[in-house]
Design a protein around this nucleic acid. Sequence first.
DNA 1: TTTATTGCTTAGAATTTGCTTAAAAATGCC
DNA 2: GGCATTTTTAAGCAAATTCTAAGCAATAAA
Lengths: 225, 225
Amino acid sequence: MKILLIEDEEKAVKTLKKGLNEHNIDVDFAFDGTKGVKMALASEYDVIVSDVIVPGINGFDLTKHLRQKGIKTPVLLLTALNATDDKVLGLEVGADDYLTKPYEFKELLARLKALSRRGKEVPPPKLILKFADTEMNLTGKEFIRDGKKIELTPKEFALMEYFIRHQGRVISKAEIAEKVWDINFETTSNVVEVYVNYLRNKVDKPFEKKLIHTVFGVGYVLKDE
Amino acid sequence: MKILLIEDEEKAVKTLKKGLNEHNIDVDFAFDGTKGVKMALASEYDVIVSDVIVPGINGFDLTKHLRQKGIKTPVLLLTALNATDDKVLGLEVGADDYLTKPYEFKELLARLKALSRRGKEVPPPKLILKFADTEMNLTGKEFIRDGKKIELTPKEFALMEYFIRHQGRVISKAEIAEKVWDINFETTSNVVEVYVNYLRNKVDKPFEKKLIHTVFGVGYVLKDE
DNA sequence: TTTATTGCTTAGAATTTGCTTAAAAATGCC
DNA sequence: GGCATTTTTAAGCAAATTCTAAGCAATAAA
């Protein structure tokens, strides 16, 4: 196992490093948050352990930062405070566990093992929908056509997903409004048309084959013709 | 959207209710499983969210119970950290999704939306009318003769549908005007004639056999002769 | 054969429906 | 709170459909 330790008390680092090494755990360390973020981005760790109060970026912000960058490595925060609010904040921010000082080395070890196991858990099954030469990753919100990634906004993505889930069937604008926009009443809005237009610009225009077809007076169909 | 939340931690309920309400989601809640089942049977929800460990009936048994009663509302179970076995059991029992605590509110929201959408999906019954060598798909507004697809405008389609539904019977122009155009009074308009002409051009002209026949002074018949 | 009636065909005017664009409003992020 | 992005609204334009009207063709009765 390999962990990243972010801690500014030199003595603590030394003790921990020694203790952990004895249990076959490699330890990289950083003395401040800024350095810590850089290291976390640079290499893969099983767990990141950070004191909440360190120079530069503090533990909370560090966690937030990493999560925003898409780093999902489990984070264990260490703090002297036993404030419940801090714990809540820590978890909100994306940390996975919390340990208040002073703690027993055994406890730290146990949690590290648990977190490491968790990090290695098989990621939840990737939900992927496919249609013609397109592919959409529902968990990653990624849409690809002909190998090229296409950036879609959330609404565009939801609309495309609805199309793919009902490929080959003609879908009325009212149905789309209801299922994708949650509009249950008659509406004069033309959002659906606007978004179909947006989708076409991104998904169809750059390609030879068109996938979204209009059925006049009825709605739209997604088909490969 | 309206969900049922079964959770015994009062604080969690409060937080969730507030957060969900902000996203336009109505929340009913029950503090124990027994009450939860009763409520689920009494009203319709888009999604049921239940902690696995609640007083009375637990999340698994609750799901099983509801499924036995024929309730198909999607169920999202909340389980404690690292309980991989729980996941498997939950899904076997008929739950639709699981979320391990601690979870991000965003994630919960995303899954609720996904589940709500799934619950509302109803496989559309394909309505197809057939006559002679023609076939019409009422949901897709597709008309086919002799394997060849023929594009019809909405009015043309409606007229053809009326013909097929009354195949073999002589239909007066007044009847067509009333049933297809919603014209209930005497009219001097010749729309019906015009549209029969349009239909003939598309449906009969390119083929040997004619299907639409004029009965002079009376009306039209659809027959295969 | 003539004539009145009924039906057919056609062009284009009127209407409806869909597309596109820009800007305003709302949302989310630092 | 300001900024960037996303979503919605609104209006004008384009395309397709629907309808009207007029002339022509077919039919039936005289």
